[in-house]
Design a protein around this nucleic acid. Structure first.
Lengths: 151, 151
DNA sequence: ATTTATGCAAATCGTTTGCAAACCT
DNA sequence: AGGTTTGCAAACGATTTGCATAAAT
């Protein structure tokens, strides 16, 4: 499967989810999805606008909110003042976690061994049972200093 | 050891850390530390002001920032618009994680079995080695709906 | 034609900051 | 006195919203 096919499939899935939510897959929404796929790491809205200066800021906020409600993008809040957006895990095919750099604010992805992930899941299930909390998502993020900033 | 002793020790440790950072342990800072100890869960500044309406909002923000720099409190950002504050783990003696309710915004603590925590630590160390990232903190939080909200 | 999306500018709201009075030491 | 902390009100800045225009169906 070529990268082009991947992209085509991604857009198709995005369109499906938006339509399922009664929304259109407009050119600008398609553009945002394409950008997020290309950048392949959680990005802020200012970063998106840098790549695409002709996007209106308010429309970017609005469309990312629409995409989030439809389950196409995921919004993450770290430690700084900007929210970051990335494609949802089930569109990118891999469950991952985040390395959050407190110095430059950058966020990158990492994965843990399958066994560790399975243990985490088991612990989550137990906590849920014990507390009556309904878990929809878990986050296992590392906070610190990235290689570039500590150099 | 009585709860009174606990509190006295807490204040002593807080004072030490502030002094080590060249700061004073003023009555208002002591009040904030006492409140956080009493509430025993991450709270927003509006919540703190509810409990202590005579606190000036700006001073609360400023003093919590001072306490954070001195390592007495920890600031956490969840999914809503408010930052939350709690005493740092080494002052409360137990490593814990957070249950974040997307419905009411409430944050409560939970712990996982020691073995799971150890596996996590090992995975963290491996990722750090592989990526050159210096890890100062990890967060393992569950996002979902609390028992009260799903009732 | 009617509904939905877009872009601009203005509003919102948690948080930060300037400044003068109160408080240490 | 000299430096710090406090409280008020004003400023800040990321995000949201009102409204008029432009697409889309």
């Amino acid at each position: 499967m070529t990268s082009h096919d991947h992209l085509a499939e991604l857009h198709e899935q995005a369109a499906d989810r938006l339509h399922g939510d009664g929304q259109r897959y407009t050119p600008q929404r398609r553009l945002l999805v394409g950008l997020l796929a290309e950048l392949d790491q959680p990005v802020t809205i200012p970063q998106l606008l840098e790549h695409q200066p002709d996007l209106a800021q308010s429309s970017a906020y609005r469309n990312l909110a629409v995409l989030e409600r439809a389950g196409v993008v995921h919004r993450i809040v770290t430690t700084d003042e900007f929210a970051r957006y990335e494609l949802t895990e089930d569109l990118t095919q891999h469950h991952h976690h985040h390395l959050i750099c407190e110095s430059c604010g950058d966020v990158s992805d990492f994965t843990v061994p399958h066994q560790v992930e399975a243990d985490l899941e088991a612990a989550v299930a137990k906590v849920a049972r014990r507390t009556g909390f309904t878990v929809t998502d878990h986050r296992f993020d590392l906070v610190g200093t990235c290689a570039r900033c500590s150099a």
